[in-house]
Simulated scan of single mutants.
Amino acid sequence: MEYLVTMTTRVPDGTTEREVAEVRTREAAHSRELAARGRLLRLWRPPLGPGEWRSIGLFDDEGPDALERTLAAMPLRVWRTDEPTELGPHPADPGRGEVPVAADSEEYLVTFAVEGPSGTGSDSPAGSKRAGDVAAEGRLIRLWTLPDRDRAIGLWQAPGADRLREILHSGPVAGWRTVDTVPLTRHPSDPAQVT
């Protein structure tokens, strides 16, 4: 099962820079181990405010209990809280590894809900065809359903936010869709290979 995990770290007052550096070094090594075992698929940083320290990770684990064990074993967990979201399969998902991550593009997590007539969702024939088209263009990397099944979330890439908006506002269900976009920055420990 795949999970999107928002990880928020709060370093306690009085912690030395050396202690922080040691934990971060151990965290990076552990992240490489998780990636080698196929547990950590991707790692990003969302936009951060002053004093914030957050990451978003895409994990693959055997279930919620196994994911909790994986997250609990990570060195930064001593200062971190995790918010996992179980990701469900989406019929229009291009599939893991099918769309390469491009070095000349920025990545975005896009959550959307379709609020139109029956049969107009992203899993409709028209929505699935559009998803296939943008995946073939190298723009839609992955697509999942969210637990409430009324929403989906996708990992997208585009040369910039304006181009992403053009892509998202085209297609057969654009007028019935609400969209929330989070720009992502690659984390130094991201295991993805960039082409």
Rank of each mutant, 00 (worst) to 15 (best):
E2N: 13
L4A: 09
V5A: 01
T15S: 15
T15A: 14
T15K: 12
R18G: 05
A21V: 02
R24M: 14
R24L: 15
T25V: 03
A28C: 02
E33Y: 06
E33F: 07
A36L: 03
R37Q: 12
L41V: 01
P47S: 10
E52Y: 12
I56E: 07
G57C: 08
G57L: 05
F59K: 03
D61T: 12
D61G: 09
P64G: 14
A66F: 07
L71Y: 09
P75V: 06
P75Y: 09
R77G: 13
V78H: 11
R80K: 14
D82E: 14
D82T: 13
T85P: 10
T85F: 10
T85N: 12
G88P: 08
H90L: 06
A92N: 02
D93A: 10
D93G: 10
E98A: 15
E98C: 10
V99G: 02
P100T: 06
A103W: 01
D104F: 00
D104Q: 05
Y108F: 15
V114F: 08
P117I: 02
S118H: 08
G119N: 07
G121H: 00
S124Q: 09
P125G: 08
G127I: 02
G127T: 01
K129R: 15
A135E: 04
R139A: 11
L140Q: 04
I141P: 00
D150R: 09
D150L: 05
R151I: 00
W156A: 00
Q157R: 00
Q157I: 01
P159H: 01
R165L: 14
I167A: 14
I167K: 07
V173R: 11
V173K: 06
A174P: 07
P188K: 05
P191G: 02
